[in-house]
Amino acid sequence: MTTTGRKQVLLLDDSALTLDMAKTVLEAAGFGVLTAVDLAALEGHLARSKPDLVLLDVQMPEAFGDDVGMVLRAVKGMQVPILLVSSLGDTELAQRAREAGVDGFISKRAGLDALVERVCAILGQGPRQP
């Protein structure tokens, strides 16, 4: 939760464009958004803040998001929802999420609107009307 009372989403993706698109639509929906383009940035955010939801890209140059999710959940004991976000197929994503012990996935193929809808559903918040 942010100091302004907004639920906070932490998003890890190696694509700066993807991060900016997701941040824009999620902030428009009323969420606070922290973005991390690599693991160092992710660790920095986690040291300073307590997000309400963590979204992890799967295929990145330095790590797989499902491995990162497994560490956050099993090693660091993170209890907030952790979801994988990827353009991989749903079957593979579901399997990766299950094996990593995280809470599910969001397909990039469903687009930005679906991303916002899913985050709203998970965090129990309706999208802010324009």
């Binding site: 694509s15 295929q59 193929r109």
Partner: peptide, 17 residues
């Protein structure tokens, strides 16, 4: 493969199926 994966993800999020 990584470059094309990233490109595909960016396109998908913009609805360029």
């Amino acid at each position: 493969a990584g470059e094309l994966h990233a490109l595909g993800g960016e396109a998908a999020m913009l609805g360029l199926e």
